[in-house]
Design a protein around this nucleic acid. Sequence first.
DNA 1: GTCTATATATTGATAGAC
DNA 2: GTCTATCAATATATAGAC
Lengths: 190, 190
Amino acid sequence: MNRKEDIILKAARLFRKKGFSSSSMRDIAGSVGIEAPSLYNHIKSKHEILEIILLEIAEDFTNGMNSICESDKKASQLLKEIIDLHITLTIKKTDQIGLLTHEWINLTGAAREKFLKLRNDYELNFKKVIEKGMMEGEFKKLHIDLTLFSTLSTLRWLYAWYKSNQDMDIDRLRSDMYTLLVDGLTQGLD
Amino acid sequence: MNRKEDIILKAARLFRKKGFSSSSMRDIAGSVGIEAPSLYNHIKSKHEILEIILLEIAEDFTNGMNSICESDKKASQLLKEIIDLHITLTIKKTDQIGLLTHEWINLTGAAREKFLKLRNDYELNFKKVIEKGMMEGEFKKLHIDLTLFSTLSTLRWLYAWYKSNQDMDIDRLRSDMYTLLVDGLTQGLD
DNA sequence: GTCTATATATTGATAGAC
DNA sequence: GTCTATCAATATATAGAC
């Protein structure tokens, strides 16, 4: 790992813990083990660090979602694969995901637009899966946006839960998430 | 509404939109319609504003939860009443609730401790309801903390959804939330 | 209770020596 | 590539006139 990657990683941890605006360049430099001005040999600005972190993880989600949507499996299976995607990325990039939900408000200009477009595309694809399940009679017919929002909330907050439960068996986690997020939609249908 | 209440309200909206650290005293004063130094005739500091907002809404939740837990209804009914509590407070105090999940990281000292104790007590009471449901055979036996976390995630993010869907019929909202959060736990039991 | 003027600290970022 | 020294902007907060 080179210095730039280390800066990005240490900054992500700091941003998650104290927030982007409350973390100073001196804080970041300190946790890397150098002085603040030295950071500028590797990155252009504090905002650029946030942009790199958020766009990378947003693209991870978009790429994963696109792979899933290529197939024509039934909706409950697609939903399970989306859950798997969130679990996998949560484990691999816990700090970065912790910034996804809130720190994007600190993005400006083109980076902000790009991030919001990636997020919106992701949500649209997710929505299509839920609509498909409801249309084909596999899911209960609920308010689509509310169902999307409810499912996404749990998946997005998985990182917070995972932080303090890193010892949990991943297969058990996956299985329980299926029950919580899929069975509620599929079981008890008339 | 007196000036102090107005300051708190305008600050809550600003903090939700831009974050606590990115909102300056000048910003707050501007949205109230006065100059920054005039704020200090009504509040002690910027941190005090955040403390007032967060402790008030945290106590709203604690009081509501305590009322619910006094009765000895079955767990699914208690869970529905907790959902009602979240819906009611979300509608009444959308901005303040938007700060609950993240901006508490800006609290320090005694206020931070008090807030975290209120939040922890709330979660413990919530957990007891879920445990009760699982013990009495009404809920599926899943990982208790994961179930708590999943349910709370949806309830905590309701405010974000509500912001852009204020026209939705509240009875429909309530009914769909029951289906999403309660039926998944109760239906399909062997 | 509100204002203008200002104190003091901290911020992101740059210049230039090594 | 890292450092020390420093700049310009902005932050929270206070003093004191009205």
